[in-house]
Computed example of a mutant assay.
Amino acid sequence: MMRHLVLFKLNEGVERDDPRVVAGVEAFRALDGKIPEIRFWELGWNVSDRPIAYDFAINSGFDDAESLRAYVEHPEHQAGVALWREFATWVIADYAY
C-alpha cells in the first residue's frame, strides 16, 4: 500500500472563503469515486493555530506505486492541481506501508 500526503499553504492574503479556494477544495473533494485507483481518501482544513502549521491536508491511499502514479496523472487530479496553483503552495510525502 502507498500513502500520499499533501499539505497546502494558502498564499499570503488568500482566505478560505476565497471563491478560488472553495472551488479548489470541491475539485479535490470530488475526486473520491471519480478515480478508481483511490483506496482511501480524506481531506480537511487544519485546526491548529501553530505558526508552522499548513492550512489544508489530503491523506490518501493507493494499492501500489503504479496506482498512485495513475492518480497523479489522471486528468481530474491535474485539473484540481491547476486550480490550487493559483492560490497555494504545497509539500507532499509518498510512502509505502
Rank of each mutant, 00 (worst) to 15 (best):
N46D: 14
H77A: 01
R20H: 08
A65I: 10
Y95E: 11
K9C: 09
I38N: 02
G44H: 15
W45M: 10
R16V: 10
D55L: 12
V72R: 00
R39I: 10
D49L: 14
V81H: 04
E66M: 09
A53F: 12
E86V: 03
I58Q: 01
Q78V: 09
E86P: 05
R29M: 04
E73W: 01
L43S: 14
H77R: 03
G61A: 09
M2L: 13
V25K: 00
E15A: 13
E76S: 05
E76A: 00
L83P: 04
A30F: 01
F8D: 04
F62C: 03
N11G: 12
E12P: 05
A27E: 05
D64W: 14
I92L: 12
V72C: 03
E73H: 03
W45L: 08
I52S: 15
A93P: 08
G33M: 04
I52P: 07
L83R: 11
A65W: 11
V22L: 09
F8A: 07
L68V: 06
I38A: 02
E15L: 06
E76N: 02
W41Y: 12
G33D: 09
L31V: 00
V22R: 09
R85F: 07
G44M: 13
V22I: 12
G80E: 03
A96G: 09
W84F: 07
A30R: 06
L7Q: 11
L83E: 05
A96N: 12
R29A: 06
A82F: 02
I92N: 11
D64G: 13
L10P: 04
H74M: 05
F40M: 15
M2C: 12
A82Y: 04
V25P: 00
L68Y: 14
E86C: 03
A88T: 00
M2E: 09
P19D: 04
S67M: 10
P19N: 07
D55V: 12
D94M: 02
W41T: 02
A57S: 13
E26F: 00
G80D: 02
L31K: 03
D18T: 08
D64R: 15
W90P: 08
D55P: 14
E42N: 15
W41F: 12
D55I: 14
R85K: 15
W45Y: 14
F62S: 05
D94R: 15
F62L: 10
M2T: 04
Q78P: 01
D63G: 15
R3Q: 11
F28V: 08
G80R: 01
V25R: 02
A65C: 11
E76Q: 00
V81W: 01
A30L: 03
S60A: 15
V91S: 12
G24I: 09
A93Y: 08
L43N: 11
R69K: 15
G33F: 00
K9F: 10
E66L: 09
S60H: 02
